[in-house]
Design a protein around this nucleic acid. Structure first.
Lengths: 237, 237
DNA sequence: ATCTAGTTAAACTGTTTGGCTAATCCCGAG
DNA sequence: CTCGGGATTAGCCAAACAGTTTAACTAGAT
């Protein structure tokens, strides 16, 4: 990647059992940056969250900018690397779709901060995102293309309708991510999400697969063949 | 609403043709707040954007906090009020769906700042959003329910499959908004979006309607009856 | 004892906010 | 026309605060 993405610092002690301060800082910074954004985050708050002195932040990461860029770089890589690996060797498009949805939702659920950081960067319109994407583009197995290719293949095999793979991929990702992004709003508008978010996520997972499966299957598909585990009788209520 | 949402200030001149400074400030603040976030925004920058002196900001809106809350309050109201009004008197669910998608996309395209402000508020996890939503909940014709009700009715009439209206609404909204939110990323990943975003939006519009129409129609629907204007041969490529 | 990485408290520097004042502009009323 | 008053400006100030730096302290290793 373009930026320095390795967590490097003065702490390269031989075999010491030191509490990995650098990691503590990184985690704390990620947490605070994702919640408050780059500008809203205070070095003091990060230091507090890491349980260390403010000056130590500068000892490990010279400046706030550098700390932020390190955070973002790691998030970006983690995001990219994780992206395609759920799709290993499934065969039918229905299986691929389900694996993709599950993988995406699981990832975001576990790495909420990563997503929020990416979101913040998208909103703030800085150059960081662009640089990283530009670099990722050069990569051989650019992960975003995997699902897109699967869609394209399924279209070619007439397994699904002749949709635009890029648009379709965007729709799937939208459906999987948006409700995490707007969780506060969703929570206010949806009783289930408010009282049991995990249950809501499961319901959402089923719904997304269901609506996309029906939305994508080829026109001459057998109506009664709901794919295994589609949620029962074909509805998602 | 809870907060003071009327743009009030010292400028209550009788019939003067004065340049509505308050409005200028408001627009500038909205622009800057949406681009930089509440914390990233500088009062000086807002003043510059409005083409006025910084002291005048404090003259009209005492503090930054107050200016921000006013901005957010107005955005929230505008968003809520606009929400349901595209659905006036269409009949078939397909028409309703199309009108909703078109209305939503048009609104967000014209009021990008509004959306970004709402997004920022969602991310930052402040109390503002909650307060406003709480208040809006009490409102008689809570606009978000309109589309939800249309979906519910269509399900009851068996015009569409037995989907969960809340989930379905969320999916529609996701599909319409998410690509605006992540526009920088989408632009990098999609050549069409990069060179002609408007064309991309039109394509997206068709795709969303198409995939949702097929995803929602009831299982026994006539396969060949693609609704008027669905984009031709049923695909969206 | 000395060296070094890790850590800290305190100081330094620049910026931002909020507030204030005095001067000016501009319009409409008298 | 002049006057008055709201609108607006430049400019200043103090307090707060954030980011950064410095110098000193600690504890374990050599």
């Amino acid at each position: 990647m373009t930026a320095d993405t390795t967590i490097s610092g003065p702490s390269r002690r031989s075999g010491t059992t030191a509490p990995d301060t650098e990691r503590q800082i990184f985690d704390a910074a990620l947490e605070v940056f994702s919640r408050k954004g780059k500008d809203g985050a205070r070095m003091q708050e990060i230091a507090d969250a890491a349980g260390i002195n403010r000056a130590l932040l500068h000892y490990y990461f010279r400046t706030k900018q550098q700390l932020y860029e390190t955070c973002f770089g790691h998030c970006f890589e983690r995001f990219m690397q994780t992206f395609g690996q759920w799709l290993s060797d499934t065969d039918s498009f229905a299986d691929t779709l389900r694996a993709f949805i599950d993988g995406y939702i699981d990832f975001v659920r576990e790495h909420r901060q990563v997503m929020r950081l990416m979101l913040n960067e998208n909103l703030s319109g800085g150059t960081l995102l662009g640089e990283h994407l530009e670099a990722a583009f050069q990569t051989e197995g650019f992960p975003q293309r995997i699902m897109e290719d699967r869609i394209r293949e399924a279209v070619a095999r007439a397994e699904i309708r002749g949709v635009d793979p890029k648009q379709t991929l965007l729709t799937i990702v939208s459906a999987c991510l948006f409700f995490f992004v707007t969780r506060p709003t969703v929570t206010y508008l949806n009783p289930l999400a408010a009282e049991d978010f995990d249950a809501f996520v499961e319901e959402r997972r089923r719904h997304i697969f269901d609506i996309l499966y029906y939305g994508l299957r080829s026109g001459d598909a057998d109506q009664s063949s709901s794919p295994a585990g589609a949620g029962g009788e074909g509805g998602d209520r």
